[in-house]
Nucleic acid binder design. Structure first.
Lengths: 207, 207
DNA sequence: TCTGCCATTAACAGAATTGTTAAACAAATT
DNA sequence: AATTTGTTTAACAATTCTGTTAATGGCAGA
């Protein structure tokens, strides 16, 4: 059993190092030797376990996407049904932000490496749509009834999602600039943005 | 004179090809031979004119940043002073969006290639602050008086700028996904987002 | 204890990519 | 026409990076 744990440790070490390297430098900027070094193994080991750089990259994408989807579904599930539509949107948005802030390079990585590539995009679209399909129809219904009951100022689902994702992604990305541009810590900046995003969405949904 | 024009054409051709290559693939993903091919010259010419890939990259950054700054200052200058604060913010935001939509890979390029690198970031910060310094103090005053006169719902300058830049950058980035995710053209999506961004900002500024 | 399997290492091979050089060439100047 | 200057080309050198291989060592089960 000890050897299996050892094996997992090596694999895990490589995956962790690879995640860091790929997310911060992108596929072409990442170096397999650098990954191996970070993981504390010879670079032959990396090829032994993952064959090629491409295959290793795909593993990283898989886990990253899985985590992303999980974070959204979790946040959505953990909702209090007694809350108003507005409160629920804000709750999901904030949960989503917390996840994304933990991996702030993720959004720009997605935009730079995944979305432009047709194959990579297809890959994650399939995964996402099978995992998020039911959530989407659920959302659609909830939004429709909110629109019809005149609870909120009318808005389409794509624009609402776009608003939330946009504000959160940009918060994560720009948080890396906080200390460089404004003289505040990243945490302070994120707290400010969180508040501001909430104001924006609430005002948007109010009639 | 003909030879000078020729020289400019070659240089320009390389610069144009390099801009496309660097913006879409990033520094490490870009290939100097691919740039040379696109420009229709041998790849030795590229080195003859620009010495190294790094130097060529710096030239691209220079022009890209210059264009970005110009677009903002132009948009700000072209303002109608008789407009309300809210209307002016919207006008500048829309002008900025039009520029950015012409180069939709620009935001993710900046986030992936420029901002994480301390040297590159320093470079553009200097340029930007010297060019945008006066604009910043101007903005500060305008916003302060708007805040004090209770024209608008109170907001800090960093958050206002962050809102505008965020919404525009995200619109540009996500516009590349419009046809892939929703069944609409990029132009339709941008038009929708433009409208939505305007709604968001106006509601944000209203008391 | 022997055998076979798996993990690991070090050295190396191969490919891709950047950068150089020497020679040819073209245009302008004397 | 000869010289000079700067441009262009093709071949090549150098490096960097990915991927392979053959040899080593340990450990489990026969």
């Amino acid at each position: 059993m000890a050897e299996k744990e050892d094996k997992m440790n090596v694999e895990k070490a490589i995956l962790d190092a690879a995640t860091e390297e790929f997310l911060s430098k992108g596929f072409s900027g990442a170096r397999t030797v650098a990954i191996a070094e970070k993981a504390g193994v010879t670079h032959a080991m990396l090829h032994y376990y993952f064959r090629t750089k491409e295959k290793l990259f795909e593993c990283i994408i898989d886990t990253v996407i899985k985590e992303l989807i999980d974070s959204v579904t979790e946040a959505y599930k953990r909702q209090d049904a007694s809350l108003s539509f507005e409160d629920r949107v804000v709750a999901v948005m904030n949960a989503h932000l917390d996840f994304i802030i933990a991996k702030p390079q993720l959004p720009s990585f997605l935009f730079m490496e995944i979305f432009p590539s047709t194959e990579n995009f297809k890959l994650i679209k399939e995964k996402a749509s099978s995992a998020l399909g039911s959530l989407n129809t659920q959302l659609k219904e909830t939004l429709e009834s909110a629109n019809n009951n005149e609870e909120i100022d009318n808005i389409s689902l794509p624009m609402l999602i776009s608003d939330v994702v946009t504000l959160n992604a940009a918060t994560a990305i720009s948080s890396q600039l906080a200390t460089k541009l404004l003289n505040i810590t990243k945490e302070e900046y994120v707290a400010m943005r969180k508040q501001e995003n909430e104001i924006l969405i609430r005002k948007r949904l109010k009639k």
